[in-house]
Design a protein around this nucleic acid. Structure first.
Length: 922
RNA sequence: GGGCGAUUAGCUCAGGGGGAGAGCGCUUCCUUCACACGGAAGAGGUCACUGGUUCGAAACCAGUAUCGCCCACCA
C-alpha cells in the first residue's frame, strides 16, 4: 500500500544530470499527451475530484516514508463533535497541512492524526436543547437513554466538521479517525485516572468551586471567563447592628457586591492592624433579617483601605471567606440550590432566584433603615465559558488533581528547550500560569463524558478507583455504586497525543509510540494554552516515561474581522470559511491565511482582499498555460544551465529552495508565502518567461529546447514548493504538465532538494541578467517618459564602466535588444553618448537612448536637476558620516568601507548626471 | 492591579543597528498571440510621542499616549 507509493515518490530523481534524458513521462493515469488547459482556473470544478483522487490513492493514510528519515507526526487539536468549521479552524488546518504536506514530500514517514472531542458540556447542551424541543429534560429520559441520545447526536452531526476539513484540503489520516469517547480512549482515560488516584494525585475535596447554575456543573478555574469589559454593578453598604453597643458604636457598615450572600454570613472580619475597629473585635453582631448572632473577628486578609474596612464573611460562597472560615473555625452555610435559587437556609427568601433575592434583600435593608448607601461599582464576575452564565462560587465536594508535583516538570521542559514555543514570548504566559496554578477541579455534574471510575461500598465504606467496572466491594463483597459525576472534557483531551497512538498504559512500550512519539509540532490558538497545551505536557511527562508530547508549539494569531473586532456569534460578524471557499476557492483562502502567520497576536481578515491570492493563482495558471502552449517538440529531460538567463533562473531557484527550507524550519510561514510569490511573479513570470519568448518563437531548435527544459523544470519545482500551501491548483497544473520523476501525484512527489540544487548557484549569471534587466528598464523608462510605443524600435548604447560588466552584458545583448525592441545595442566600458540621445542612469550602467529630435531638453534638465538634488542630499549625508572621526574610528570596518564605496559611487553618479546636464545645455 | 502585543505609504500589513518594503488603492500609457484577475512607467512615508544607549536608532532600552489580548479572590 502506501509503502510502495511513498517509496516510489522517494526514489524519484530531482538531481541535475541524472534524469531520463529524451524520455517523455508516460503515465496512463494522466495521459502522455498534455490536454490543453482552459483559460482560467475553476476551483469548484477541480477541488472535489482532486481530493477524491488523493483519498482513493490512500495518500492521506500514514505513510512509511524513506528509510532513515525522521517521522513527522501531528495531532490535530480535536474539534468538538458539535462544531462547525470556523475561521480559526481554517487557519490552523492550513498551518498544519502546510507542515504535513511538506514533510510528506520530503519523504518522511508522515501522519496527521485527526478526530473529534466529545465535548462534554457543549454536546450535552445541544442534546438537552433537542430534548427540550420535544418538551423533555434529561431527567425525564434518564441517564442511560440520555447518553444514547448523545451518541445518536454524534452519529448524525459528528462528521460535519471532519468533512469541512476535507474541503480545506487537509491531508489528515481520515481512515483512522479518533474520538475521545471511543472504547480504547475510554480505557486510556481510566488508566490515567486510576494511576493518579493510586499515586495520590487525585483527591476528593470539599471546597469552593466555580459553579455554573445553568449547566448545573462545577468548572475548573481555566473554564471561567471574565467579560471583556467590566460590567456595571453596585457596591451596597449595609449596616450590621451590634448586639450590644461598644461605646457610641451601634453598628458596623460592610460593603458587598452580592448582598444576597448575607444569608450565609457567619462573621464580620476586620484587619488586625486597623485601629478603627480594635475595640470591636470580639463583639457580636445580630445579622439583620435572619437574627443570627455572628462574631467580629480579626484576619489579615482584610484590606483596611477598601470599602469600609469591614468584610462580611460567607465561607460557603467566596473562596477567600472560605479560607478565613477555616482559620477561625466558622460554620459554612450554603444558601444556594444547584440552580442558584435560594435554599432553605435563606428563610423567607427560599425559592427566589439569586438576583431576585438580591433585590429583595436590599429592599428589606432599606425598609429597616440599614441600607447605608449605594455606590456604582464596576466588577468582572466570572462567566461559564460554554453558556455565558455568571458563575457562582459554591461549596461542594469535587474531585481534584494535585497540581504541584505535575507543574514542576512541565515548567522544566519549556525552560530547558525540550519544548519550544513559537513565538517564544508565550513561554512567559505558560510559566506564569503553571507557577501559580491551583488544583484542578475535574469532576463535572454531567452525564455525557467519561464517568469517574471511583466506586463506593455503602456497606463497609470502602472507596477506590478501578479500571474495570466493579460489581462487588473488594473489601467486604457488598454492593458498590459508581461515582455519578463525569470528568472534565479537558481531562481526556490531555492524553490526546498518546491515547490516539495506541497507548496501553505501559509508557512508550507500543510499536506506534516508539516510532512516532513524541509528535513534532502542535499548532493551536493561544486561548487553550492552559486548558489543553499545559495539561498535555504534564500528563505526557507523567505517563510517557518523561517524554514531551511535542517538540514545538505554534501559537497562531487570532483572526479578526476587517474592522479589527473579534468574531462572535453575538456580534454576527463571523466569517464562514466555507463562504470564502465558495467565493474564492480553497487555495486562495489558504494562501491568504498563510500570509498572515507572522507571530503577531492577531490579524484582520477582509474577504475582499483575497482577490490578491485569486489573482496570484490566475497568474500561476496562465504561466503554466504559456509553458504548455509552447511544448511542441519538447523532449523530456534535465534542466539545461546553458545561457546566462538559464543559469540565472536556476540559481534563483536554488536560493529560493534554501530560503523556503529555512523558513519552514522556523515556522515562518508568512515569509514563505512572500518568497514564493515574489519568485514566481517577479522573477519567473516577469523575466524568465519573457526571456523565453524569443527563444521559443525563434528558429533555433536548440535554444527552443533549452528554454522548454528550463521552463518545465522551474515550473515543476515551483509547483512543488507551492503545493503545501495551495494543494489543489498546483496538483491540477502538475498533472497537465511534464515533470521529472514518476510520482503519480504532486502530493507524493519529492520536495526540491536544496543541497543538490545548490550546484546551480551562479553569481556571474545573476549579475549578467541584472545588467540586462537594468538596460531594459532604462529603455522602458525613457519610452514611458516620451510616449514612445514599444513597437517603435530604438537604437541604444550602454556604458558599463564597472570592470567586467561590459563583458557580462555583452552576453545578453540579443535578449535585451529583443525585449526592449532595439535596432541596435552597443555595449562598451567607455561608450560616448550618441547625438540626439537621452542618457539614463540605471544601476551601475548608463544607457543612451537615441531619440532624434524628440528630445525635450527642458524636461530632461528638470529631471536631472531633481535627480541631482536627491543625490547631493545623499552625498552630503555620506560625507557627514565619513567626516565624523568617531564613525571612522568606532564603526565596524566593513561599515566604513561600505560607506566609502557608497560615497564614491554617489560622487560618480553626480558626475555622470552633471555631464548629462552639461550635454543638454545648448 | 500584573503580564504581553500593536502603533511603518490613503487602506491592510511585512521588515528590522549603517541607503524606507509588499499587496490593494491612486496617476499615465498599453487591449502586442500566458494572464486586463494582465503588462510598462510613476506618485506617495519625520516608521505614534518623549527621553536614553550608540560613531550611527524606524529598529535596542525607559517612559508616555492610544488600541488590543491574557492573567488576578480587593469584599
Amino acid at each position: 500500500m502506501s509503502e510502495t507509493r511513498q517509496g516510489t515518490a522517494s526514489r524519484e530523481g530531482m538531481r541535475p544530470g541524472e534524469g531520463q534524458e529524451g524520455v517523455v513521462p508516460d503515465d496512463p493515469e494522466i495521459g502522455s499527451t498534455w490536454a490543453p488547459m482552459p483559460k482560467s482556473y475553476d476551483p469548484k470544478a477541480i477541488e472535489g475530484p482532486i481530493f477524491s483522487s488523493w483519498q482513493e490513492a490512500g495518500y492521506f493514510e500514514r505513510s512509511m516514508g524513506i528509510e532513515g528519515k525522521d517521522p513527522f507526526t501531528i495531532v490535530i487539536p480535536p474539534p468538538n463533535v458539535t462544531g462547525v468549521l470556523h475561521i480559526g479552524h481554517a487557519l490552523n488546518g492550513t498551518i498544519q497541512d502546510i507542515l504535513v504536506r511538506h514533510a510528506r514530500m520530503q519523504g518522511r514517514p508522515t501522519r496527521w492524526i485527526v478526530g473529534t472531542d466529545h465535548a462534554g458540556i457543549a454536546t450535552q447542551n445541544r442534546v438537552e436543547k433537542r430534548l427540550a424541543s420535544r418538551g423533555l429534560t434529561r431527567f425525564d429520559v434518564g441517564r442511560e437513554k440520555f447518553v444514547d441520545e448523545c451518541w445518536k447526536w454524534r452519529e448524525e452531526y459528528g462528521g460535519t466538521i471532519i468533512n469541512q476539513f476535507k474541503a480545506l484540503g487537509c491531508s489528515c489520516d481520515y481512515a483512522d479517525e479518533k474520538f475521545t469517547m471511543s472504547p480504547e480512549y475510554q480505557r486510556a482515560v481510566r488508566k490515567v485516572f486510576v494511576t493518579w488516584y493510586d499515586d495520590g494525585l487525585i483527591y476528593r475535596g470539599h471546597r469552593i468551586i466555580n459553579w455554573c447554575p445553568r449547566c448545573g456543573t462545577a468548572l475548573s478555574d481555566a473554564e471561567v471567563e471574565h467579560a471583556e469589559q467590566p460590567e456595571a454593578g453596585h457596591l451596597w453598604y449595609l449596616r450590621y447592628p451590634l448586639k450590644d453597643p461598644v461605646g457610641e458604636v451601634t453598628y458596623v457598615v460592610i460593603a458587598t457586591t452580592r448582598p444576597e450572600t448575607m444569608l450565609g454570613d457567619v462573621a464580620v472580619a476586620v484587619s488586625p492592624t486597623d485601629e478603627r475597629f480594635r475595640k470591636l473585635v470580639g463583639a457580636t453582631i445580630v445579622l439583620p433579617v435572619l437574627g443570627r448572632e455572628i462574631p467580629i473577628i480579626a484576619d489579615g486578609y482584610v484590606d483596611e483601605s477598601f470599602g469600609t474596612g469591614a468584610v462580611k464573611i460567607t465561607p460557603a460562597h467566596d473562596p477567600n471567606d472560605f479560607e478565613v472560615g477555616l482559620r477561625h473555625d466558622l460554620e459554612q452555610i450554603n444558601i444556594l440550590n444547584k440552580d442558584a435559587t435560594i435554599n432553605a437556609n435563606g428563610g423567607e427568601f427560599a425559592g427566589m432566584d439569586r438576583y431576585a433575592a438580591r433585590d429583595a434583600i436590599v429592599a428589606r435593608f432599606d425598609d429597616l433603615g440599614l441600607l447605608d448607601h449605594v455606590e456604582e461599582h464596576d466588577h468582572q464576575p466570572g462567566h461559564c465559558y460554554r453558556c455565558g452564565t455568571v458563575i457562582e462560587p459554591w461549596l461542594s465536594d469535587q474531585w481534584f488533581v494535585k497540581m504541584g508535583p505535575l507543574a514542576e516538570p512541565a515548567l522544566d521542559v519549556v525552560r530547558d528547550g525540550r519544548i519550544k514555543f513559537y513565538p517564544q514570548r508565550w513561554d512567559a504566559t505558560y510559566y506564569a500560569w503553571l507557577e501559580n496554578v491551583r488544583d484542578w477541579c475535574i469532576s463535572r455534574q454531567l452525564w455525557w463524558g467519561h464517568r469517574i471510575p471511583v466506586f463506593y461500598c455503602d456497606e463497609c465504606g470502602w472507596r477506590g478507583a478501578s479500571e474495570e467496572d466493579l460489581t462487588a466491594c473488594p473489601a467486604c463483597g457488598g454492593t458498590v455504586r459508581q461515582d455519578e459525576d463525569v470528568l472534565d472534557t479537558w481531562f481526556s483531551s490531555q492524553m490526546w497525543p498518546f491515547a490516539t497512538m495506541g497507548w496501553s498504559g505501559e509508557g512508550r512500550a507500543h510499536e506506534e509510540l516508539e516510532r512516532y512519539y513524541p509528535t513534532q509540532v502542535l499548532s493551536t490558538a493561544p486561548d487553550i494554552l492552559f486548558l489543553w497545551v499545559a495539561r498535555m505536557v504534564f500528563s505526557s511527562l507523567y505517563f510517557m516515561d518523561g517524554q514531551v508530547p511535542f517538540e514545538s508549539v505554534i501559537y497562531h494569531p487570532t483572526v479578526l474581522d476587517k474592522n479589527g473586532d473579534r468574531m462572535s456569534k453575538s456580534r454576527g460578524n463571523g466569517i464562514d470559511p466555507l463562504d470564502l471557499i465558495e467565493r474564492w476557492g480553497t487555495d486562495a483562502i489558504r494562501f491568504h491565511l498563510a500570509k498572515h502567520v507572522t507571530g503577531a497576536q492577531s490579524f484582520r481578515l477582509d474577504p475582499d482582499r483575497i482577490v490578491t491570492e485569486r489573482n496570484f493563482i490566475t497568474k500561476i495558471w496562465n504561466a503554466a498555460r504559456f509553458v504548455q502552449m509552447n511544448l511542441d517538440g519538447y523532449v523530456a529531460g534535465e534542466p539545461l544551465a546553458v545561457e546566462p538567463v538559464d543559469r540565472w533562473i536556476l540559481s534563483r531557484l536554488a536560493s529560493l529552495v534554501a530560503q523556503v527550507d529555512a523558513q519552514l524550519e522556523g515556522f515562518e510561514i508568512a515569509d514563505v508565502t512572500t518568497e514564493l510569490y515574489n519568485f514566481f511573479w517577479n522573477e519567473f513570470c516577469d523575466w524568465y518567461l519573457e526571456f523565453s519568448k524569443p527563444r521559443l518563437y525563434g528558429d533555433d531548435p536548440r535554444q527552443r529546447l533549452i528554454a522548454q527544459r528550463n521552463l518545465v523544470f522551474v515550473l515543476d519545482n515551483a509547483l512543488r514548493l507551492l503545493h503545501p500551501i495551495m494543494p489543489f491548483v498546483t496538483e491540477e497544473i502538475w498533472r497537465s504538465m511534464p515533470h521529472l520523476g514518476d510520482a503519480p501525484s504532486l502530493m507524493v512527489a519529492a520536495w526540491p532538494a536544496a543541497d543538490t540544487l545548490a550546484s546551480f548557484a551562479d553569481a556571474d549569471a545573476e549579475h549578467a541578467v541584472d545588467l540586462a534587466i537594468a538596460t531594459i528598464a532604462a529603455v522602458r523608462s525613457v519610452r514611458a517618459r516620451y510616449g514612445i510605443s514599444s513597437r517603435e524600435p530604438l537604437a541604444v548604447a550602454v556604458k558599463a564602466a564597472v570592470p567586467g560588466d561590459a563583458a557580462l552584458l555583452l552576453t545578453q545583448t540579443d535578449l535585451a535588444a529583443q525585449l526592449a525592441n532595439l535596432v541596435s545595442l552597443e555595449v562598451t566600458a567607455d561608450a560616448e553618448k550618441p547625438a540626439h540621445a537621452i542618457a539614463q542612469l540605471s544601476g551601475d550602467i548608463e544607457v543612451f537612448v537615441v531619440l532624434g529630435d524628440l528630445v525635450d531638453f527642458a524636461a530632461e534638465r528638470g529631471r536631472l536637476d531633481k535627480e541631482m538634488g536627491r543625490v547631493r542630499a545623499d552625498l552630503a549625508k555620506s560625507e557627514g558620516k565619513l567626516g565624523n572621526e568617531s564613525f571612522v574610528a568606532k564603526a565596524a570596518p566593513a561599515a566604513v568601507d561600505k560607506e566609502r564605496a557608497k560615497h564614491d559611487e554617489l560622487l560618480g553618479v553626480l558626475e555622470t548626471l552633471g555631464d548629462q546636464l552639461a550635454d543638454l545645455a545648448e
